[in-house]
């Protein structure tokens, strides 16, 4: 059994808003093992990004951690002071590249000056050391070193994204979380970003990756395990091969069928999308939250919330159609 880098136990994080409580992450348990790339997939608004912020303990009102525990590399960060988390956990043990990371760089600072500020916050090293560290890392990752001396607006979208990823992993965190890192990029640039992530792992700069996206074809290229999220809950998880070749939850099957790639298998079955829209999480549907859009819904689905059960070797599904 491999060791766990991250354990989240029955986590609930809600937004308290004037319109009501948004249950964006509702009773989610998630483990990330050492050495794997975990792909998290789901539609916009299903709570993927909120879950990632919660795993980092990047929690600010109106978002509240209502329940649950988060353990990163043996440290119970769900109980830690924010100040301590900032200094000892973020960037050092676990790093997050958020969805809007293309705008994370300071427009008025050259990349190298930005790096200097970021690194100094966490460790006590001289300017010279930081520069040589950054140069070495950019060289190792095959990124143009000259770009360190440029301003963000002088870089292309793909280069910016790669620079942000390189900066986030400068202090060799064990776990890197990337949230939709390639959604704004064209296919060729996307491939370069994915290659960079694999290199980070190959060179042992980081141990594990959590990759969040709504594009399953991208996960197919890099992920080892797949977790499918719907309306604030995990509905299915397992190895990439198992989940893709034999999806158990109707939502997972729908997501896979919605993939549009130029392949004979897909041409044969035609293009299908999941009907309807994801629910509002202030008033999620009763029972199984997917039942209003599900083609196989039964009377029980409206009434009883299905548990996420282990059906074999870590393969988990929450659906009344599936018997443990």
């Amino acid at each position: 059994m491999s060791t766990l880098l991250l354990e989240a136990e029955r986590v609930k994080s809600y937004y308290h808003t004037r319109e009501g409580t948004v249950k964006a992450v509702d009773d989610v348990s998630l483990d990330v093992e050492n050495g794997i790339i975990l792909g998290l997939a789901g539609e916009s608004g299903c709570g993927k990004s909120t879950l990632m912020n919660t795993l980092m303990m990047k929690i600010r009102p109106p978002l509240y951690l209502v329940d649950g525990e988060i353990i990163v590399d043996g440290e119970r960060i769900s109980k830690m002071e924010r100040k301590e988390i900032k200094k000892k956990i973020w960037g050092v043990k676990i790093s997050l590249v958020p969805q809007s990371a293309l705008n994370a760089l300071m427009p008025t600072k050259r990349i190298i000056d930005f790096i200097r500020d970021v690194v100094k916050f966490h460790v006590d090293v001289s300017d010279g050391e930081i520069v040589s560290m950054a140069r070495k890392r950019f060289e190792e990752l095959n990124l143009p070193e000259d770009s360190l001396y440029l301003y963000p607006h002088e870089l292309s979208g793909g280069m910016k994204q790669r620079a942000v990823i390189a900066i986030s992993t400068l202090l060799n965190p064990k776990l890197l979380i990337v949230d939709e890192p390639t959604s704004a990029l064209d296919v060729s640039t996307q491939k370069r970003v994915l290659k960079l992530l694999l290199d980070l792992k190959k060179f042992k700069i980081i141990d594990s990756i959590v990759f969040v996206t709504h594009d399953i074809a991208v996960l197919r290229q890099i992920a080892d395990r797949l977790v499918i999220m719907y309306a604030g809950k995990i509905v299915e998880s397992g190895t990439l091969e198992d989940v893709l070749s034999n999806p158990k939850h109707p939502y997972t099957a729908g997501l896979i069928h919605a993939v549009i790639t130029p392949e004979p298998e897909i041409r044969k079955r035609g293009l299908v999308s999941i009907p309807g829209e994801p629910p509002n999480l202030i008033n999620p549907p009763s029972g199984c939250r997917f039942h209003p859009r599900c083609l196989h819904a039964m009377p029980i689905c409206k009434k009883v919330v299905p548990e996420l059960v282990d059906i074999s070797n870590g393969r988990k599904v929450s659906c009344h159609l599936v018997k443990a």
């Binding site: 296919v187 996307q190 491939k191 790639t261």
Partner: peptide
């Protein structure tokens, strides 16, 4: 050809990935 190779596919994995 490059464009075609760079499209991520569901049933095939890229070379070297």
């Amino acid at each position: 050809m490059r464009l075609k190779e760079d499209v991520p596919l569901l049933y095939r994995k890229w070379k070297g990935f």
